[in-house]
Design a protein around this nucleic acid. Structure first.
Ligand code: MN
Ligand code: MN
Ligand code: ZN
Ligand code: ZN
Lengths: 144, 144
DNA sequence: CTGTCAAATGATAATGATTATCATGATAAT
DNA sequence: ATTATCATGATAATCATTATCATTTGACAG
């Protein structure tokens, strides 16, 4: 945890941003909810527990900044809000999601699985892949 | 074109919906822009050219209805709007997209490519896949 | 034909997430 | 200490989408 925050701090400094107390509190909330898919409002409410004087705008700004630095990925599951998902450190690509149509749960697949598909796309469509988004919609193991 | 509209008409009737003039005008616009990825506002402006008295709410309602019937797919590329994409008739799964980070273009991949990956996900994660969304972000063939 | 009724429409208000603005506060270098 | 820059918080503005409601349409029964 602390080492992770330290690395994010360095990453911020390398772009001449500071790790302010508000930003640190926000990052801590994200780390403590690594498996969840929190909206900005969700993050705001959780950060307020430790840092009640923080403003909603600051949370939005911090999430935007972390997205820029590729610490988190901004993702949209089709309900009306953006959700922020901590990226695996050092992962080349964003991980995949399993969205259950029954219970609404969102599970993660950390393995890439797309190597072959991406090779094919790169050659046949002459497209240089930088990243991807893959979501499966269906019935989760709990609902079956 | 006419046959396609006829099949959509039957699909509507089978759920006891009618193909009103407004709905038909909207469907025609979608068919005429099959390769584009139009927002509700885009569709509204295009429909107005043929049917100026249509209201924006009706366009939203029609797009919602067509999404329900799986005639179109609602998709979100991360700019603030939903876009509506005509589905290939009879396709089991939604097609894939190539989004260029340089020029913003969105190209389509109609081939499935995911058969093997889906088999693996179904068995290893015990998840019954109904549909998917796959988007690649990178540099398109024109920008290279 | 008419009258009836549910479905559909269009104008517009309301909502809700996100962004912009701006005065104030913190920080670090000079 | 002074100044300059960055960051923050309150709040207003924006903008896509949804809800509301009075009116219209079209299928159907008599
Ligand atoms: Mn995730
Ligand atoms: Mn498409
Ligand atoms: Zn489930
Ligand atoms: Zn391009």
């Amino acid at each position: 945890m602390e080492q992770r925050i330290d690395r994010i701090k360095k990453q911020l400094h390398s772009q001449s941003y500071k790790l302010t107390p508000q930003r640190e509190a926000t990052v801590r909330v994200l780390l403590e909810h690594e498996d969840d898919h929190l909206s900005a409002e969700d993050v705001y409410m959780l950060v307020k527990e430790k840092y009640p004087e923080i403003g909603l705008a600051t949370v939005y700004r911090t999430l935007e900044l972390l997205t820029e630095l590729k610490v988190v990925d901004k993702i949209n599951f089709g309900d009306g809000v953006s959700r922020y998902d901590l990226r695996q450190e050092g992962a080349a690509h964003f991980h995949h999601h399993l969205v259950c149509l029954e219970c609404g749960s969102v599970d993660e697949i950390q393995e890439d699985l797309l190597d072959d598909v991406e090779k094919e796309v790169e050659t046949r469509w002459n497209f240089e892949i930088k990243d991807h988004r893959l979501t499966f919609h269906g019935i989760c193991h709990r609902c079956k």
